[in-house]
Design a protein around this nucleic acid. Structure first.
Lengths: 144, 144
DNA sequence: CTGACTGCAAATAGTTTGCATGACG
DNA sequence: CGTCATGCAAACTATTTGCAGTCAG
């Protein structure tokens, strides 16, 4: 499910955006990783190949890419700044390694039944949920 | 399960803290509500009865109270600053109304099976999870 | 040309830290 | 006394906004 430059460019254009070198650079940095990064960390990495880019551009780019569903945010223990990672816009959740930050996606959250029960009990109309699992990946288990 | 001043004072003292008027004021503000508040909002309310209190004290108090399990944090859609609310320290989750901010707790998250399956599939050792449900409460459904 | 995009600098927000002072056992 | 707590001011970090110059169609 590799997205080509063309597809991404098309997707951007559909929404009135352009695929600029900066946006491309951000996408490159993020898509080659399996963990999550802060805006600042993305900035650092992008800067290496693209000195002179502004941190502001990173923020704006992330906003656009997230809007198109090419990225999504992650909440992490302790602080909950807006960490981000790559992934298309299907309903899914994250399993995050507290050791190395690696993120694994999964789609089946098995919450329907729970939502229905709570809806019955509380009268709430369910709209959405936030689910993230934390643990240690095999690698980090060895180290610890 | 109302906590008396004495119990709270004892709990604080056990951990080497004191029950000061400021801490008491913060607890009062929070314990009378069913929704979540930002530190700044808590500050505003506490200030009314307790002018001259510092925002810093609110932050420090919240930290202490959270450490003792008298409060806990909430993540909210959009931004995810540290919103807070009252509640004892048992494993539980939040059902949050996107309309009015009301929070309902529930304990049975039915995630064991999911965690076991994912653990088998990915080799992760599960430690913890973050689960929050969002919806509209009965009241807010009427309004909308 | 026009609108989209970028980068800088400045402005905001939210939160933390250092320090002198005061309360209390 | 010695410890903990408070409030102020300052420091920081994270993020957003205003603006002028640039670029592609």
């Amino acid at each position: 499910m590799k997205l080509t430059a063309n597809k991404i460019a098309g997707l951007l254009r559909q929404h009135g955006y352009k695929l600029t070198p900066q946006r491309w650079a951000v996408l490159n940095v993020i898509s080659h990783r399996h963990d999550h990064l802060t805006p600042a960390a993305i900035y650092d990495r992008v800067s290496q190949e693209h000195p002179g880019i502004g941190l502001v551009t990173i923020y704006r780019t992330l906003e656009v890419l997230a809007e198109l569903g090419l990225l999504c945010k992650v909440h992490v223990e302790g602080g909950c700044r807006s960490y981000l990672m790559r992934r298309p816009s299907v309903h899914h959740h994250h399993l995050i390694c507290s050791g190395c930050g690696r993120v694994v996606d999964f789609t089946d959250c098995a919450l329907n039944e729970l939502e229905q029960r709570l809806s019955r009990e509380t009268g709430f109309e369910m709209k959405d949920h936030l689910l993230e699992l934390y643990g240690h990946c095999q690698n980090c288990q060895k180290i610890a």
